[in-house]
Every structure is written in C-alpha cells, then in structure tokens.
Design a protein around this nucleic acid. Structure first.
Length: 325
DNA sequence: TATATTTGACCGGT
DNA sequence: ACCGGTCAAATATA
C-alpha cells in the first residue's frame, strides 16, 4: 500500500473511531436513564432467563467497532497492536514520533540527599518514545498516576504515570500524557523506560470467543499473557473461564457483555488519564472467574485477544480487509 | 481498610 | 528565578 493511501486510511479510521465513540457516549446517556446496570452474578445465575433482548447489543456492537478501529489504527501506526505503545524508537509509525535517545538512563535520585522530598535528577534525554492518538487508548499496562502539572504555553495539564509494579517489582516504566489540542483532541503520550514487570489481568484484553462446537451454549473466555513487557518472553499458558448458567447463549452473552463492555470502555478512556474524561466503572474479570458460576479450568496471569467481529451477519473484519486490500 | 488519586510543596537543571 | 519532574499528605474510592 502506498504511503499516501496508508495515511488516508488512518485518517478515515480515526474519523470512524471518533464517530463510534460519540455514538457510544450518546447511547450511554440514553441507556443510563432507564436501565440499571445489572451485576454480573445476577446475570450469570440465569434467574431471569426470559428477559427481553439485551439492550446492550448496540453498545456491544459499538464496542467492537471502536476496538477494531483502535486496533487497526495502532497496527497501521506501529506495525502491531501490542506494540502500539511498547515499541521503542525505531518502530516509527505515522503518528508516532520517536524521540531521540542518546542517553538511555532513567531519571535517578540524587544520592546525597536521598529521602528528601522532590529530590531527583532531572531527566535529560532518556530512552523514550512518543505516541499520538485521537483518544485515550489503554495500552494494556497498569499505570499509577503520581503527578499532574500545568505546562507553560499549553492549554492542558500534563499527567505523570508510573508503572503500578514500580514498588513491588521495581518496574521503571513511566509515561506522561498530555492533550495537545482540542478539536480534534490529540493526546501525546511519552513513554519512558521499558516494563520489566509481569502485569496482571487487564480487562481491556478480555474478549469473547464464539463457540467452536455448534450448539454449545456456554461461553468461553480466553486469556493468555503474552503481553510481553519485555518482548523476549513468549511463554503463554492459557487461562480459561467458562461461564455457565442462563437458558440461552444470548442470556449469557449479555451477562458477559457487561464485562466486555466495560473492558471496551476501559480501552476508550483509561482511568484518570486525563481530567475531564470520566473513567468507566469497570469490574475486573477476576471476579467472574472466581464466581461459583464460572468454571475455571486453569489459572495464571495472562491473557489473549481473540475477537470475533462478526455480528448479526455483518462481518466487520471482512469489511476492513476489503478496505485495505 | 487498602489502594488509588489529587494537589501543593519541594528540588534540581537551565 | 523559572520550569518541570517528583514526593507525599490529604482525600477519594472500592
């Protein structure tokens, strides 16, 4: 594909992504008025098996569309979805500006006054890379916000994040997120340091798999970690949780849709990454796995994306394939 | 109660 | 002195 076509394709995807997000927000507002969000357990136990069709279908569809667009954009930008935010300078996609890395040294505390508040050596040019995105996209890592600053000559504050596992695993990864323009919004994320941690489950990567056996009405959730924080590890052991209960597959799908839906929400806007962007109320899927309604076949800390985009006869995947062939 | 976020203070580089 | 990155107490949330 020609570079200009590639760029145009990304532009179109970005537009679709924004539209999907707006539509999702619209639906969220409408549905929140007359619909209480049922808890997973209530859904799974199948007590209300003959309820009306899932009102979440449209949102689920939107979630799929949005996630697909986001993934595709990341692929076009960086070569792969997983690497969308993990690839250090050199991967250089359309919207990612690799930042010079002359000195691959993380900011270090000054040894003389250790323990003194705010004592640090200002980072000069470290091993960092930058990504731009039209929305806040969950990069699959777990971050903890530790600061926010108003930056000179900018309209929006800059947020500072460090890896959640900095303390328990000594992971040095950090990132800064800042909105650089308003219409359309552009979020600049500067990553610093590579992850050395083994991250735990992230809901944004939990996807439903369709049944492989006709008539099988149970729903298989598939997790796998490859989530390689260090690009070298590709050892993956599958974790599976089969959710039973409910009379129909649709009923169970609706139950899990809550989790998938919130995982999509999590993909759209990471918690508190930027003030003014509300964080979704999501529940980790571990509770679903741990639920006595579920059938945990094995357990570890990994996950895998296994997404079937075919919904109601409309194959989004095929459409995308045609679009880019 | 544990964990995460907010926010003003602190500090070093420029 | 200014600016930006970090700390940590206060606060919020699960």
């Amino acid at each position: 594909m020609l570079p200009e076509n590639l760029s145009a394709a990304v532009q179109q995807l970005l537009r679709g992504q924004d539209s999907a997000k707006k539509l999702r927000d619209l639906l969220t507002v409408v549905s929140s008025v007359d619909q209480k969000k049922p808890h997973m357990k209530e859904e799974v136990d199948g007590a209300g098996g003959d309820r009306s069709p899932p009102p979440l279908a449209a949102k689920d569809l939107l979630g799929d569309i949005f996630q697909s667009l986001t993934s595709t954009i990341s692929i076009l930008n960086n070569g792969s979805f997983e690497e969308a935010s993990q690839v250090p300078p050199g991967g250089g996609g359309l919207f990612s500006n690799s930042v010079k890395s002359e000195e691959s040294e993380e900011s270090s505390k000054c040894s003389t006054a250790r323990g003194r508040r705010g004592c640090y050596r200002r980072r000069k040019i470290s091993d960092s890379w930058t990504t731009l995105s039209s929305s806040l996209v969950d990069d699959g890592q777990q971050w903890r916000k530790y600061g926010q600053k108003a930056i000179l000559n900018t309209s929006f504050p800059r947020s500072y994040f460090r890896c959640t596992h900095q303390l328990d695993q000594g992971c040095p990864a950090k990132k800064q997120v800042q909105m650089t323009s308003e219409n359309p919004p552009v979020f600049r994320t500067i990553y610093t340091g590579k992850h050395t941690c083994r991250s735990l489950l992230k809901p944004s990567h939990i996807i439903l798999a369709h049944p492989r056996v006709p008539g099988d009405t149970s729903i298989l959730l598939n997790f796998e970690t490859g989530q390689s924080t260090d690009n070298s590890s590709n050892t993956t052991t599958a974790t599976r949780a089969r959710i039973r209960g409910g009379k129909t597959r649709e009923a169970r799908e609706e139950a899990i849709a809550n989790y998938v839906n919130v995982s999509c929400n999590n993909l759209w806007s990471s918690s508190s990454e930027y003030e003014g962007f509300p964080s979704p109320d999501y529940t980790l899927l571990e509770s679903a796995i741990g639920s006595d309604q579920g059938d945990v076949l094995s357990s570890n800390q990994s996950l895998e994306v296994n997404m079937d985009l075919s919904i109601d006869g409309f194959d989004f995947e095929e459409m995308l394939a045609h679009t880019f062939s």
